[in-house]
Design a protein around this nucleic acid. Structure first.
Lengths: 108, 108
DNA sequence: TACAGTGTTCGACAGTCATCGACCATATCA
DNA sequence: TGATATGGTCGATGACTGTCGAACACTGTA
């Protein structure tokens, strides 16, 4: 594990409050990230590969929120930062919530 | 049905967007209202009987949000406005969401 | 070393919203 | 009719946060 990866602050989904979880999934940009992550295999997408209507600064902010909410795990692979949706862990903490987010057809 | 009750603007839960639903349940005061409502029978609680740390102006605002999100139905009974949690309808639109809100032990 | 690509951090800004006091509307009762 | 109780509306305010540009940091490669 690289020094950059080691410095990443992750939150265990088991310790995430309902408030933080709801705040995290309440943003449409973050829900887009979650849906795109769920559509592919783990560790397949770098942060920059998501189709988002915001700059990279805002993008970075959203990934930090998702990490803090226990929704996303990140790992560095060279210059890229790969992502994984923490689906089983998060499902155990908040059963059904992720299903609702991913099932909804509306983009916003 | 009184004129006051008739003028109340309700939203059919079937037409509520995921965004509006999440925004509604993201507020701790509104979640307290939902939990207290779920703890008793329908039409048993007037707006003023809830234990909330806000003034009645803010209280009225929160009930309007809950109505617009299809979570609460209201009816006038004399000077009081009685409430009902629209649990079956909302559950059909967003399965599991209300369960998560009501099950969480944290007050905030 | 130099450079290009990826992502973060910082400061600033703007829009949203929860909150409040004050005032108003309605219903019931003396 | 007045008095009281319940609840809504209005305008203002403060805090939060999503957003951005600019500067910085790290990795891999020429």
């Amino acid at each position: 594990m690289s020094a950059r990866t080691r410095s990443l602050t992750h939150t265990d989904p088991a310790e995430v409050s309902l408030q933080d979880a709801l705040d995290a999934v309440s943003d449409p940009v973050r829900r887009t990230i979650l849906r795109e992550l769920a559509a592919g295999p783990d560790w397949a997408r770098a942060c920059g590969t998501f189709d988002l209507p915001v700059t990279k600064a805002t993008r970075s902010h959203h990934f930090a929120v998702l990490r803090a909410a226990g929704l996303v795990e990140q790992r560095d692979e060279g210059p890229r930062r790969l992502n994984r949706l923490r689906r089983p862990e998060f499902d155990q903490r908040f059963p059904g919530l992720l299903d609702l987010i991913l099932a909804d057809p509306t983009a916003d």
